[in-house]
Write a protein that binds this DNA or RNA. Structure first.
Lengths: 219, 219
DNA sequence: ATCATTTTTTAGATGGGTCTAAATTTTTAT
DNA sequence: ATAAAAATTTAGACCCATCTAAAAAATGAT
C-alpha cells in the first residue's frame, strides 16, 4: 500500500513528465509539492526501492509502469470526485480542487467504479481534463487556444491556461466555464477580439487577451 | 487541525463513554483501537494538551466539550457517507463501514453540509444509527429488542445487537435490514418465536434467538 | 494489611516524512 | 579548462505515532 504522500509524489511526477520531455528534476518536484529538495531526494529513494520510479542520482526521475498505474488511478479518482462535487453537490468548478485532493486518496476499487457508474462513465472532469477509465486509458483530445479558432467554428471550453483566481473569477462573471459550447461568430481584425455565442443564445464579446487563456476542444 | 489518528481516538472515547458510565480506561481504548496501552497513554497526553479530553493518570479519560464536538462531527460524517454509499451507489449496508472509516476524515464543512442536503437531511444511517445534525444534536430514539415487542405492535428495524458477519448474513438472507418496517403479527408461546409482516406483504417467521439480536424503534 | 496481580505509565527505540546545513556533483561562464 | 554558480545529495536532527521492556500505581485476595 502507498501513503498519501507517496501517491502525491507519483501524481506530481506524472504531471511534470507530461509537460517537460525528459526526466523530472528534484527541484521541479520540490516546487510542485511545496517542499524541500532534500525531502524530495529522500522520497525518491523510497519510491525507487518500491520500483515505482526510475531514479538516477543527479539526473532525474521517471515512472515505471507500476508507478504510472498508481498515478493515473489517483488522477482518475481526483477527477471523478471533482465531477461528483460539481454535478451532484453543486459546488462551483473552481471550488472543488482542495476537497478532491483529499478524496483522491480514498482506497476502494469498488467505490471508484461505482462512483464512475453513478456519474455515467464521464470522459471529462469539470475543468475539462480527461478522466482515465478503469484500465488507465485516457482520451487525450487535441486542445487549442480559443484565440486560435477560426470564424464560424464550434468548440467546447475544456480548461484554462491561466489558473489565477483573478482569471477564474473573470470567467465566472462573464458566464463562461468548462463544458460550455461556443460558436465563434466573428473575429474583429482591429484588436483580434471575438464575438461568441454561448450555447444557442447568449452573445459574448471577449478580448484576445482573455481568449488566449481559454482552452477548447474542436466540435 | 486534528490528525486522522486523533479523530479516531476521540471517536473511540465517545463511543466507549456511551456504553460504560464513568471514565474510559486506557486498556479499553487500546483494545478498541487495536493498539497498545503505551501508545494510548502517549496519545492521551497529547489530546489532553490540546484540551480535547479530561485525563487523570491511572484513572481514566472523558471528553471536553471541544473533544465531544470533534467526535460527533466525525460520527456525523461517517454516517452521512455510509448512507450515501448505500442509497446512491447501491452498496449493501454491510459493505460500507470500511470505506466510511476513510471518508469520515475528509475536511470540509461545506462538503458535509452539501452531502447532508443531497441526502435529504436524513436522521438515520443504513445501520439505523442516528445522524447528528450540523449543530451536533442527535435524535436518540428509544431502542428496543424486537424480542420485547408486543403482539400487533409496529416497529422499524434500527440496528443489530450482534454484529457478527454470520448474523448479518443471516439477516440478509431472511430479507431483513435496517429501515424495514415490521408488524408483530403473532408470538408463539411455545418457543417465543415471532410471526412478522415485513412492509405490507412479506410474512416472516423468526426465532426468539434471532429477535433478541435485532434492535427496533417503536412506531 | 500485605503481597501478588493487573493496569497504567515511563523510558527508550523505530519508521515515516520533514527540515537545515554541509558536502558533492553537474552546469555554466569566461 | 577551470572557477563560480546551481542543482542535488548526504548528514544529522525533529515531530508523529507506534512499539517493547521495565517501572510505578492501583486493585484484589487472603
Amino acid at each position: 500500500m502507498n501513503s498519501f504522500t507517496e501517491e502525491n509524489y507519483l501524481k506530481a511526477i506524472y504531471k511534470l513528465l507530461e509537460g517537460n520531455h525528459g526526466p523530472v528534476t528534484t527541484n521541479a518536484l520540490a516546487e510542485a509539492l511545496l517542499t524541500r529538495a532534500a525531502s524530495v531526494t529522500d522520497m525518491l529513494k523510497k519510491l525507487s526501492g518500491k520500483k515505482l520510479i526510475h531514479y538516477r542520482r543527479y539526473y532525474g526521475v521517471s515512472l515505471t509502469a507500476a508507478g504510472r498505474k498508481v498515478a493515473v488511478n489517483v488522477i482518475r479518482k481526483h477527477r471523478l470526485w471533482e465531477l461528483f462535487l460539481v454535478e451532484k453537490l453543486h459546488f462551483r468548478w473552481d471550488e472543488v480542487h482542495e476537497i478532491a485532493e483529499q478524496l483522491e486518496h480514498i482506497i476502494s476499487e469498488e467505490l471508484t467504479y461505482r462512483l464512475d457508474r453513478f456519474l455515467g462513465y464521464p470522459k471529462f472532469d469539470p475543468h475539462g481534463d480527461p478522466i482515465p477509465d478503469r484500465n488507465g486509458r485516457i482520451v487525450q483530445p487535441r486542445v487549442f487556444l480559443l484565440s486560435e479558432m477560426e470564424r464560424k467554428s464550434y468548440c467546447v471550453i475544456s480548461g484554462v491556461a491561466d489558473h489565477s483566481p483573478a482569471f477564474l473569477h473573470f470567467l465566472d462573471k462573464t458566464g463562461l466555464g468548462p463544458g460550455d459550447e461556443l460558436k465563434v461568430e466573428d473575429i474583429i481584425e482591429y484588436d483580434r477580439s471575438m464575438q461568441l455565442v454561448l450555447g444557442r443564445k447568449k452573445k459574448i464579446h471577449l478580448s484576445y487577451e482573455a481568449a488566449k487563456n481559454i482552452l477548447v476542444r474542436k466540435k
